[in-house]
Amino acid sequence: MFNILILGVTGVSAATLRAYNVDPGLVSVSGLSSGGSMSVQLGVAYSETFKIGFGAFAGSPYDCARNQSYADCMSNESPLITTPTANMKSWSGNEISAVDNIESRKIYIQVGSADTTVGPNVVDQLNTQLSSFDNSANITYVTTSGAAHTFPTDFDASGNNACTDSTSPYISNCNYDGAGTVLQWLHGTLNPRNTGTLSGTIVSFDQTGQYGAPGMDTTGYLYVPAACQGSSAICKLHVALHGCVQGYSQVGSTFIKNTGYTMWADTNDFIILFPQAIQDNKYYTIFGGKKLSNPNGCWDWLGWYGTNADQIGGVQMVAIVNQVKQITNGYQGNSSISTASSSKTTTPSSPTGATSASSSAGSAEKLINKKQAILALCGLDLLLILIFA
Rank of each mutant, 00 (worst) to 15 (best):
A213S: 14
P214Q: 12
P214F: 13
G215K: 00
G215L: 07
M216G: 02
D217R: 14
T218R: 14
T218N: 15
T218V: 15
T218P: 06
T219L: 06
T219N: 15
T219C: 04
T219P: 02
G220V: 09
G220T: 05
Y221R: 06
Y221P: 02
L222T: 03
L222W: 01
Y223C: 05
P225Y: 03
A226N: 07
A226S: 15
A227T: 15
Q229S: 13
S231W: 00
S231A: 12
S231M: 02
S232H: 13
S232F: 11
A233V: 15
I234E: 10
C235K: 01
C235W: 01
C235S: 11
K236D: 09
K236P: 05
L237K: 07
L237C: 13
H238P: 05
H238F: 08
V239R: 03
V239G: 02
A240R: 00
A240K: 00
A240D: 08
A240C: 03
L241H: 04
L241R: 01
L241E: 04
H242I: 04
H242K: 12
V245G: 08
V245H: 05
Q246Y: 01
G247V: 01
Y248V: 09
S249E: 14
S249H: 12
V251I: 15
V251M: 00
V251F: 03
G252K: 10
G252Q: 11
T254C: 03
T254K: 01
F255I: 03
F255D: 08
I256V: 14
K257C: 06
K257S: 09
N258I: 02
T259S: 09
T259P: 09
Y261Q: 08
Y261L: 01
T262A: 12
T262S: 08
W264M: 06
A265T: 02
D266Q: 04
D266C: 06
D266V: 00
N268Q: 08
D269W: 00
F270C: 12
L273F: 00
F274M: 04
P275K: 06
P275S: 11
Q276Y: 04
A277V: 00
I278N: 08
Q279V: 04
Q279M: 10
N281M: 09
N281H: 11
K282R: 15
K282Y: 09
Y283M: 12
Y283P: 10
T285L: 11
I286M: 04
F287C: 12
F287H: 01
G288N: 11
G288P: 04
G288Q: 11
G288M: 07
G288C: 04
K290G: 01
K290N: 14
K290P: 07
K291C: 10
K291T: 13
L292N: 10
N294G: 09
N294K: 08
N296D: 07
G297I: 05
G297L: 06
G297K: 08
G297W: 02
C298K: 00
C298H: 00
W299Q: 06
W299K: 07
D300N: 11
D300Q: 07
W301A: 04
W301K: 07
L302E: 13
W304K: 07
Y305W: 12
Y305G: 05
Y305Q: 11
Y305I: 07
T307C: 01
D310E: 14
D310S: 15
D310H: 11
